[in-house]
């Protein structure tokens, strides 16, 4: 009795929330429609022109509210448009820490990543200006990048700290161009995004590889067992040419530059990818040491990992 009631309540609640969500979407569309906006501004003007009786005041405040909401919504729509079109957007934020440097002013970088035809949660880099003496040099304050993105190295390259007052003099004497390198936020953002996108592309290509290896196997043994796993089904792939019977493909390091490939017959391989998905190295080790033949078979003259994906997809 009770569980069924609970289920019903849950169902209703999810229904409510979905309806509310729909309502919100419709409201946001309606309120930014040009006609609505015109209506709102017109009404406001009419009211302002008209006498200020007691009764319409309430109406006015309501309209004002709606107008405010409409303006907000428009701003948000514009922001979304920018975000959708430009991969890097900036925003301002306030550090909640009362003792924050520079009055808590924060410049945020928002890096959009699209993968598999959908936007992922953006990565954020929050910069502040901690250096004394009114220097306008930025510094990475907080960020949400995974540790496999070399943020520290990039920041060291493109956002070097200003020369310390004491040290600057010493270095002035030593080198003729004693001034530190200027900061270049645009290049920093660009190279950072490049790293992020590369990382996601590498992730994507690994997923493609797995799919190509797994799907092909399943196609071949269609009438056989229909296990849903991506990498399983090695038993049904006897008919595959050149012994490409893969059991598993997994990224082996944080940056997803190295892949571990396992064959059904116990051979294991390590594929090293470059930054942009070019194949740097492939080593296959079988029972009797290195198996160069299998490596050549696997690659088939491919230069990039995408070629391997294509090859696997056609082969199996």
């Amino acid at each position: 009795m009770e569980p069924s009631l609970d289920v019903e309540i849950e169902k209703l609640q999810s229904k409510i929330s979905s309806i509310k969500e729909q309502l919100r979407i419709h409201a946001s569309t309606l309120i930014t429609a040009p006609s609505t906006r015109q209506l709102l501004t017109e009404g406001e003007q009419a009211l302002r022109n008209g006498s200020d009786n007691g009764a319409p005041r309430k109406k006015l405040s309501l309209k004002q509210k709606l107008l405010n909401h409409s303006t907000l919504q428009q701003a948000h729509t514009q922001q979304c448009l920018y975000r959708a079109c430009a991969a890097i957007t900036t925003f301002r934020a306030q550090d909640p820490d009362p003792r924050a440097v520079d009055g808590g002013a924060i410049l945020g970088l928002r890096i959009e990543v699209a993968s598999r035809a959908r936007f992922l949660r953006p990565y954020y880099v929050l910069l502040n200006r901690p250096y004394p003496g009114g220097s306008r040099h930025l510094r990475v304050h907080r960020h949400t990048l995974p540790p496999c993105i070399p943020l520290a190295g990039l920041a060291g390259r493109y956002l070097p700290p200003p020369p310390a007052t004491g040290k600057a003099k010493a270095s002035d004497e030593g080198a003729g161009s004693g001034r530190a390198k200027p900061q270049d936020l645009a290049r920093f953002a660009r190279s950072l995004r490049r790293e992020v996108v590369r990382y996601h592309h590498r992730l994507g290509v690994v997923a493609d590889l797995r799919k190509a290896a797994g799907l092909g196997g399943r196609k071949k043994m269609e009438e056989g067992d229909g296990q849903g796993g991506e990498e399983d089904g090695e038993d049904g792939r006897e008919g595959q040419p050149q012994g490409i019977r893969l059991v598993d493909i997994t990224p082996a390091d944080a940056e997803v530059k190295q892949l571990t490939i396992e064959w059904a017959d116990g051979r294991t391989g390590r594929l090293v990818m470059g930054d942009d998905g070019e194949i740097l190295k492939l080593v296959v080790v079988g029972e009797n040491g290195r198996d160069r033949e299998a490596g050549r078979d696997f690659l088939g003259g491919a230069v990039r990992v995408e070629d391997v994906v294509r090859r696997l997809a056609t082969l199996v």
């Binding site: 929330s17 919504q73 979304c80 907080r142």
Partner: peptide, 25 residues
Amino acid sequence: WSVYADEGSSSSKRRGRETPLDLVL
């Protein structure tokens, strides 16, 4: 700062809101 890092574990709705294609204020 974890609002920026929240992967939407608390509710799927919040995650959807972070895409620029969601126009709901």
